[in-house]
Amino acid sequence: MTLLNDEIVQNVKDMLAEIPNEVTLTVFTDDQNCEYCTEIVQLVNEVAATSEKVTVEQYEIHKDNDRAQALNIERAPAIAITGERDYGLRFYGIPSGYEFSTLLHSIQAASSGNTDLDDQVKSFLSDLNKPVNLQVFVTPTCPYCPRAAVLAMEMAIVSDLVNADVIESAEFPDLANQYNVMGVPLSVVNNQERIEGAAPPHMVVDAIRKALAA
């Protein structure tokens, strides 16, 4: 049984038809403790099958620890979405429900290296001189979550100092507890500034400013 039905497959094909550069989806599974690892591997393979520019690499987080470290991945299941460069786009958990959109947009963005952010936001990001980690907590049923997730990923595309981790909260309850996630989307900048809801770019910029000033 496939995970994606014919209609979705066709839509994915259309969305990925014109991506310019190759994208690799590097999936990390966990042999010891992983509810949906089989499905996540199947999902990325079904997505990759729709476009010759998308390929999949698969690793086990403990056995292939070097590879996980190289991509800065500490927990599984995880997907690193890389284009010509590693822009720092990571998805933790299975991108199902609305988060499937986030995965597709991240593939498009990693392929083109382009974003729709406006010039003000881009120039702010290009001028950064300290690393910025954006964590976006989401759930698959949250309609507004892809907005927050895709925004973080676009910011990561613009600046090499920014990386974006999108985290499916229900699959990582420990992490969600640690950050006291009780509502989604929740974006966390450098482990300190929190933004609740699907905020427009300038609010995220403000939060980054605050986090860097602290």
Binding site: E39, S96, R147
Partner: peptide
């Protein structure tokens, strides 16, 4: 048990 949705994930401003 999983479903997969494609929505528009970027703010509209044109």
């Amino acid at each position: 048990m999983f479903d997969f949705k494609i929505t528009d994930s970027k703010p509209k401003k044109q």
